[in-house]
């Protein structure tokens, strides 16, 4: 048995980025190469104890970090992806979806619902990187739109945790239109004067970054997260040069004024809770659960 398994040789199943799920007991930090005890990592925030590198995590982990225990109620589980374009190039889109559903145990790339943060009701949407890298198609757009609508209906704050390569090309123009759909619902949220906290995690790019992820009233980002519109390889091809170290990271955009705070995962709940304390309190009511909002 090998003691040290390279992260990228791990199986493709599971919560979070496949590169971070080795079969071994130990895991090597992607950034500083420190050897970390996997169990410690999983029990904590999945942050390297040596250099602070943030490993990718899935929606379950974010729910447990952010929400009060047992408070989450998932919604929009009834929405299913179809194949509006009959996309068959290289791989049938329905097969592609089925593979990811099997692999990840999820129906789509974003999980939505409501829950409580220190007793305060919030509407949440969390991208999960284990489903086609969190990419956005019709279902993701619709779920985000409904999460926004839920905020308006319950008069509670909205929190979206983004991670996505962008819009999903297998749904063509319909994926692109999800940018418009979500942005237009955020205009309604503004009208209702309800706060929206956008958390950018690794990576948040392209169509997702150029719509709701950029439109937070409060924009937080995880340390080292890749953020941007165009991917670094395409930029390098365009400018025919190598990008400097740290280009397009959370810290890079913080320095340039696009991010309010770069927040390490262990401080996430406390920071968000402090922001929420500035807004009218809406406690989790049983009526709203009954109505299924």
């Amino acid at each position: 048995m090998s003691w040290f398994k390279k992260p990228n040789s791990g199986p493709k199943k599971g919560d979070g980025d496949r590169r971070n799920i080795p079969e071994g007991l130990w895991i090597k930090c992607d950034k500083c190469d420190a050897i970390l005890f996997k169990e410690d990592l999983d029990r904590g925030f999945r942050v390297c104890s040596k250099c602070g590198f943030h490993f990718k995590i899935g929606h379950q982990k974010y729910l447990s970090i952010l929400l009060d225990e047992g408070s989450f109620e998932e919604r929009e589980t009834e929405l299913r992806t179809t194949d509006p374009l009959q996309f068959k190039e290289k791989q049938n889109y329905p097969d592609h979806i089925k593979n990811y559903q099997k692999r990840s145990g999820l129906t789509e790339a974003v999980i939505t619902g409501k829950g409580a943060i220190d007793g305060r009701l919030v509407s949440v949407a969390i991208h999960d990187p284990s489903f086609i890298a969190g990419s956005m198609g019709s279902v993701v757009g619709e779920k985000i739109a409904r999460a926004i609508r839920r905020s308006i209906e319950l008069r509670c704050p909205l929190i979206i945790i983004s991670t996505a390569g962008g819009a999903r090309m297998q749904e063509g123009i319909l994926s692109l239109m999800q940018m418009a759909k979500t942005a237009i619902w955020l205009t309604r949220l503004s009208e209702a004067k309800l706060p929206y906290i956008s958390l950018l995690t690794n990576p948040t790019m392209a169509g997702v970054m150029a719509s709701y992820a950029s439109l937070g009233d409060f924009t937080l980002a995880e340390p080292g997260a890749m953020i941007g519109f165009t991917g670094p390889r395409v930029i390098e091809q365009t400018i025919r040069a190598t990008l400097p170290e740290g280009f397009q990271t959370a810290e890079f955009f913080y320095e340039r004024g696009f991010v309010d705070q770069v927040i390490p995962r262990p401080e996430l709940k406390e920071t968000i809770s402090r922001i929420l304390s500035y807004f009218p309190d809406q406690s989790m009511s049983p009526e709203s659960a009954e109505e299924g909002v």
Binding site: M179, A210, F229, T230, A241, Q248, R256, F258
Partner: peptide, 15 residues
Amino acid sequence: PGAGAEERGQADAIA
């Protein structure tokens, strides 16, 4: 898709 466009907030501007 250039570096300067990225640095000055391409995604933010479009959104």
